[in-house]
Design a protein around this nucleic acid. Structure first.
Lengths: 123, 123
DNA sequence: CGCTGCCCTGGCCACCCGGCCAGTTTCCGG
DNA sequence: CCGGAAACTGGCCGGGTGGCCAGGGCAGCG
């Protein structure tokens, strides 16, 4: 009593591997209630290539470092971060230094990029 | 002669909306050749919530700006970028300035973050 | 031929960044 | 009680960054 009134779920397929994409398209094409996206159409969900959750070697960041990192990703300067967190610029630099170290980055831009790549933050 | 020997495709589900996730899980559970991921298992593909292709308002970046942007995302300094592209630091600054303008960013870190968000570059 | 856009370069300067030194407090576990 | 880790603060300084000024060349277009 709930299957028939639910609208179709529109799925987009974003797979580089042609073989896998083809098999998925075949399999999903036969499922009632499911439909693959039409060109230009907005999809409810997308099937992407590989599992983004596998990230071996979790980075151990302290809470404060995460705070600083998040603001860095917003493009905030050290001064802005200091104001935002209610701490001194020196302390911000201290945490940024730790982040550069832990994330193996050469600068704040590199740090944000690395963090985003490893799933530590979400852009 | 090719269907039966193909291994099952393991799919991970990463949907915030519980209702949508539930409906998808039900639908996909009945499909032969498909299997949802087991906890801790690596998936061949993942179903994510939104359609990543919706990015209204394409940013018009010149080729040179894309070059500079890519190197910026790698954490390269202006001097490094200049060496890499065989141009002067001043020219790099010029392109960086244009990027900050077009991407509506306050600094190079912000520019990379914005570009990544809008799909201009891939981290 | 002018106009426009892109690419390139120089100098100058205020500010920011990252790395170095030093110190403090708090809290948790051995 | 005495580490150790985390958080916090200060000064100093070389180099990086971003914004401003000024130019130049070279392609395509009306």
């Amino acid at each position: 009593m709930s299957e028939d009134n639910a609208p179709e779920i529109v799925l987009a397929l974003e797979i580089d591997d042609p073989a896998l994409a083809d098999r998925l398209a075949k399999l999903l094409g036969n499922v009632a209630g499911l439909r693959l996206v039409a060109p230009g159409e907005a999809a409810a969900a997308t099937i992407v290539a590989r599992d983004p959750r596998i990230m071996p070697g979790e980075i151990a960041l302290t809470q404060r470092e995460l705070d600083v990192l998040a603001l860095m990703a917003e493009g905030a300067s050290n001064k802005m971060i200091a104001r935002q967190l209610g701490i001194s610029v020196h302390t911000v630099k201290f945490h940024v230094g730790s982040l550069l170290d832990k994330l193996d980055a050469t600068g704040r831009t590199d740090a944000v990029a690395h963090a985003a790549r490893r799933g530590v933050i979400e852009l």
